[in-house]
Design a protein around this nucleic acid. Structure first.
Lengths: 219, 219
DNA sequence: AGGAGTTTGTGAACGGGAGAACAAAACGAG
DNA sequence: CTCGTTTTGTTCTCCCGTTCACAAACTCCT
């Protein structure tokens, strides 16, 4: 095998590309499980639901990991992407708010298989103490600081009702969490150095409704 | 009040703007509940977490609903955005897959308050029959066609495991569903006229991990 | 009525991402 | 070894979205 180009690690990958890397990672895992050892950009793009030119350009930001005339080695590329995203590391995560959504998250196997380890489930409701979800004991929200410090947690997940979310975020930020995944339907205010990503179930439906309405209008 | 500009209804609103309209809608609802009757683009932008120039440009695609020197009438603008998105209508929705996530969705009050009405919960597992979630009886997946036809359902939600998702989507499409919200971690193949939006819990975490890793590297 | 102060709506510049298209590189056949 | 075939990596162009900056329009005060 030829020496691969491995660009210096201080390059910046476009945000749009970063958002697609996990999709490629999943597609490669699927291919790997099917026993495929090599694939072309065309095949991989098909599996990921994107166009092949875009896929190749995305991969080119990581380095030159393919072989012209042949394609990509599935395992090798999969590892390179995983390393780039950071999921070859272990990421301790706390989940706050153990309603249906919090439980769904705690049970989701897709986290552990990608390096995310749920170190604690927290809930403010005393009635939930001693409950065990996904093999993890539910603990009082007040233990947040202790847990974050002990496990060196950088990523927090908020699955509480909207009214509690800002307070939870403030406490998380205060004790050193620097990335937050927010499921509460509210815009969080956090310092600039903290990354927040928001998943809003009803917004997605509303976007569908808009297009649906337009379809109905032109039909 | 002066006559408002109301552009012809066959205009096309940029996709990026459509994705933000639900956020503005929520911010306006919050303002309204706080008793605010008028707001400036600056205030609304702050509540929505965007910059005010972008907000004004977004709103300008809908029409000219503000008053220079004054701002926007909260109730009036809220109604206009709701109408534009289509959430003043009633949207019957079916949810397939009643695991933790499906239950979270069924219980989510943010749906009903925005015109989405869950007409059925479906699950392939016979053990779940007769269960009642969020006041709605869980019915066998085979009833899909019947329900979609009876209630004229256009929007389907998939909250099943990945292996079942493509089959569910195929059945939905076959009986007339034209918009799908997919929570299963898989790229769905559907005809071009069907809209699919995907929410992937682990992808969001992976994007955070990437940035977290970069922060750690430069620190 | 007129002028000062606000705030919207939009034209114009700018930046980033998408897609087409092609040169460079690897492989295989003869 | 040479030529044809395949597929990557990259350049170039176009389009969409963001942001700036300002004219237009409205209110309030004198």
């Amino acid at each position: 095998m030829t020496a691969r180009t491995s660009p210096d690690s201080s390059r910046d990958i476009p945000e749009a590309t970063v958002a697609r890397l996990p999709i490629y990672l999943r597609a490669l895992t699927t291919l790997s499980e099917q026993g495929t050892s090599t694939c072309s950009s065309e095949e991989l793009a098909g599996a990921a639901g994107v166009n092949s030119a875009k896929l190749r350009k995305d991969l080119s930001y990581l380095g030159s990991y393919g072989t012209r005339g042949v394609g990509y080695d599935v395992e090798y590329l999969r590892y390179q992407i995983a390393r780039e995203i950071g999921v070859t590391q272990d990421w301790p995560v706390v989940i706050v708010g153990i309603g249906n959504l919090g439980q769904a998250l705690a049970n989701y196997s897709g986290f552990r298989s990608r390096g995310f380890r749920v170190v604690a489930l927290l809930d403010a409701d005393p009635a939930r103490r001693d409950e065990v979800v996904a093999g993890i004991e539910v603990r009082p929200f007040d233990h947040l600081e202790q847990i974050v410090t002990d496990h060196d947690v950088a990523i927090g997940v908020i699955a509480t009702p909207a009214v509690a979310a800002q307070d939870v975020a403030d406490r998380m930020v205060a004790c050193g969490v620097t990335s937050i995944l927010n499921f509460a339907p509210i815009v969080l205010a956090v310092p600039a150095q903290v990354d927040v990503r928001k998943v809003d179930l009803s917004i997605e439906l509303q976007i569908l409704a808009y297009h649906e309405q337009r379809k109905a209008a032109t039909a």
